[in-house]
Computed example of a mutant assay.
Amino acid sequence: MALKRIRKGDQVVVIAGKDKGRRGTVLGVRDDRRVLVEGINLAKKHVKADPNAGVQGGIEEREMPLAESNVMLYNPETGKGDRIGVKWIDASGSRRKVRYFKSNGEVVDA
């Protein structure tokens, strides 16, 4: 069972690129290890008008995917991005994998 280090809904910090240092929420993770972060890596896209679908034409800004290696999970205790590890824990008689912060050992998945 593979465990994704970055998941939808996580708070992340961008560590490389034009938006370095900015923080946002992950909107989705693609199979090619690229993540879509809310309000980060905005690009202008030209949209053609379609009167049948009720779409107005023009230029809109939209989030574009980032490489997963360019983001770190945000650790609220330290206030910075942090590396993630995976370990097994015994919870109520069953073992399961959880993510944890490398700096303080705190479990991310409650």
Rank of each mutant, 00 (worst) to 15 (best):
V26D: 10
V37L: 13
D109C: 01
A49D: 10
N70C: 11
K48M: 11
G17Y: 01
P76G: 06
V107K: 04
T78D: 03
T78S: 14
R5G: 08
K45R: 14
D32P: 06
L27N: 11
P51I: 08
R62P: 02
G28K: 07
R22T: 13
V37W: 09
V107N: 10
G58C: 02
H46E: 15
D82G: 03
V13T: 02
Y74L: 12
M1P: 09
K48D: 11
P51L: 10
P51G: 10
S92E: 12
K20H: 03
G58I: 01
A43T: 11
S103M: 02
K8F: 02
K48Q: 10
H46W: 05
E63W: 01
L66H: 01
A110L: 06
N52L: 15
M1Y: 12
D19F: 00
S94F: 13
R95A: 06
D109I: 03
K18M: 04
E77W: 09
K48T: 14
E38D: 13
Q56S: 11
N104P: 02
A49Y: 12
K97G: 08
R5P: 02
M1H: 13
A91D: 08
G39P: 13
L42F: 04
I15T: 07
D32K: 11
I40P: 11
S92Y: 09
Y74F: 15
V108C: 04
R33F: 08
K44E: 15
Q56V: 14
R23E: 13
D10F: 02
G21H: 00
V35Q: 08
V37H: 09
V26N: 07
A16W: 08
V12G: 02
K102E: 15
K44S: 12
I84D: 05
A110E: 14
N70W: 07
R95E: 11
K97A: 14
T25A: 07
G58Q: 02
H46M: 07
V98K: 04
V98Q: 07
I89H: 01
D10T: 00
G57W: 03
R95S: 08
V12A: 03
L36T: 05
K18S: 08
G17W: 00
A110D: 13
Y74M: 09
V29H: 04
I15N: 06
E63A: 13
V108M: 03
Y74W: 15
G57H: 06
V13I: 05
A16E: 15
R30M: 04
K44Y: 07
E60P: 00
I15Q: 05
G28V: 05
M72I: 04
A2D: 13
F101R: 01
V37G: 13
G54D: 05
A53M: 12
E63C: 08
R62M: 13
V107M: 10
W88I: 11
I40N: 15
R95I: 07
G57Q: 06
